[in-house]
Simulated assay, not measured.
Amino acid sequence: MNRISKYFINGLIVIVPIAITAFVVVQIFSMAEDLLGRHMPVHFPGIGIVAVVILLIVTGWLSSYWILKRLLEFGERLLDSIPIVKFIYKSIKQLSTAVFESQHLFKQAVLVPYPHPGAKSIGFIMSELSEPLAEAMDEEHVCVYVPMSFNLTNGFNILVPKKDIIALDITSESALQYIFTAGTIMPVRHDVQK
């Protein structure tokens, strides 16, 4: 029975992320398909996928031109004038910019003393401290993100003295697997092939 429950948990670990990702992608394409099916004279299976891909490419292409940049800036100024919408939009924009443009997000795994000095948690070194934060510290600190198990989007952004950080020689993928699986999959070194 113990083996069956282990297989069941392993199956959940494999299936749940795939299922959630597939669900979100299918919902986006299905919504596009429904909208276009109602308003376009020509309809064929897969038009939603084609439409979403074209929309993303055209928006990315146009955003590099002066006129659309000005329109986007105007739209952002408009959103800035609405209190709650301003907060939500700016937070999502900053997060998506960090995720899609940063080559270093979740790259350097480290051990930090968290949640108390006697314990150690795996975290990831994030961006450099801003000047106001750095000036407020009596010694050099580093910004470290410590994700929560089972949900990498939740976690704690902590400022740790640089002397207390222990660099790890592990792949970022295995560090993320370790955190996501609550320690059931142990991290491996950079040079170890799976």
Rank of each mutant, 00 (worst) to 15 (best):
I84W: 09
A119P: 00
W61F: 14
G60D: 02
V53K: 09
I57M: 07
I57R: 01
S91F: 09
F87Y: 13
I82D: 00
A98R: 10
S81L: 05
S63T: 14
Y114P: 06
H104M: 12
L79Q: 03
P83F: 03
E76L: 09
L95Q: 09
Q108I: 06
S64I: 11
S102V: 07
Y65D: 02
L95A: 13
E101K: 15
V52S: 03
Y114L: 08
Y89V: 06
Q94R: 14
S91G: 10
R77I: 00
V99C: 11
I92D: 03
L62R: 05
F100Q: 10
Y65K: 11
V53M: 14
A119L: 10
L78C: 07
E76Q: 11
S63L: 15
F106D: 08
P113E: 02
H116Y: 15
K90C: 03
K107Q: 15
K86R: 12
V53N: 09
G118K: 15
L111H: 01
H104C: 04
I67D: 04
F100E: 10
I82E: 01
E76T: 00
Y114S: 05
G118S: 15
E73S: 13
S63Y: 06
D80R: 09
L79G: 00
K120V: 11
L55F: 15
S91E: 09
H116M: 10
I122E: 03
E76I: 04
T97A: 13
K107T: 15
L68P: 11
K120G: 02
R70C: 01
I67Q: 12
A98F: 14
K107E: 15
G123R: 00
V110P: 01
F74H: 05
G60Q: 03
W61I: 05
V99G: 01
A51E: 02
D80S: 13
K107A: 14
V85K: 02
K69C: 02
I88R: 06
K86T: 03
V53W: 14
I84G: 02
I57S: 00
G118I: 10
I122R: 08
V99D: 07
K120Y: 12
L55P: 06
S64A: 09
P83D: 01
S96A: 13
S91M: 10
L78E: 01
K93F: 06
G60Y: 02
